[in-house]
Design a protein around this nucleic acid. Sequence first.
DNA 1: TGGTTATTTAACCAGGAGGTTATTAGCGAT
DNA 2: ATCGCTAATAACCTCCTGGTTAAATAACCA
Lengths: 125, 125
Amino acid sequence: MDAELLDTTFAALAHPTRRAILARLALSEATVTELAEPFEMSQPAISKHLRVLERAGLVSRGRDAQRRPCRLEAQPLRDAVAWLADYRDYWAESYQRLDALLDELQAVDHTDGESRRARPDGMVR
Amino acid sequence: MDAELLDTTFAALAHPTRRAILARLALSEATVTELAEPFEMSQPAISKHLRVLERAGLVSRGRDAQRRPCRLEAQPLRDAVAWLADYRDYWAESYQRLDALLDELQAVDHTDGESRRARPDGMVR
DNA sequence: TGGTTATTTAACCAGGAGGTTATTAGCGAT
DNA sequence: ATCGCTAATAACCTCCTGGTTAAATAACCA
């Protein structure tokens, strides 16, 4: 899985307009003006967003006379989910609790003098 | 689920350095200099990346003397996965195939004169 | 007190992102 | 041929991002 593709995929997903476009395309393919209609934004702006989505491989376009129907492509999203899923096990809450518990035990071990390890109660959200 | 939080979460994930930091933190918490060590980049640059991750809620920090141990926070990632999962059903390959098939049928229907709908073979990746 | 280590902040810079308006290109229809 | 519709491109603006180096903070140590 290419790192650059993940870059462009996550970057594409980072804008609400583009997520809304993807959500709209999940229902059916649509033309540029159809996609632009619900937004208070010029048509060129939407074209730019579409180019970002296209470069990320999230959208492909056909040709129907003047229209350029846009269609959603799933693969990059699957890759993004796969990357996230790779770490989901480590991110499990239980792991974090265990980590905090170990820190706490180690801190208690050093009560003879200096307590050198992190204090879990010092964590700031 | 807040849209702004999704913005900052996906934006934070869009940089390879930050993904590497998260991957490192998935193993255990670490200090800023520990995190900076493997990168050919100044330490202030890493601090900036950490601030991005912290503002996205992906990382929290404690205090251990001079050190600021960083710890991974899972919730925003769960939110991101949840957003992606919401659309996974629509993104299923079967749906795309069905959509393409419907287009093709509709195109065939109009062979009496003009074929007004999108041509699946005209799609460009 | 002064020194050392860890981290943040400040100031700066180049380049990219996201928007605008105006213009151009592509294609059908008259 | 030309008009109208759809979409892309150009040129421009502002703000944010990602990096730098240098200086300021914070906390420990002797």
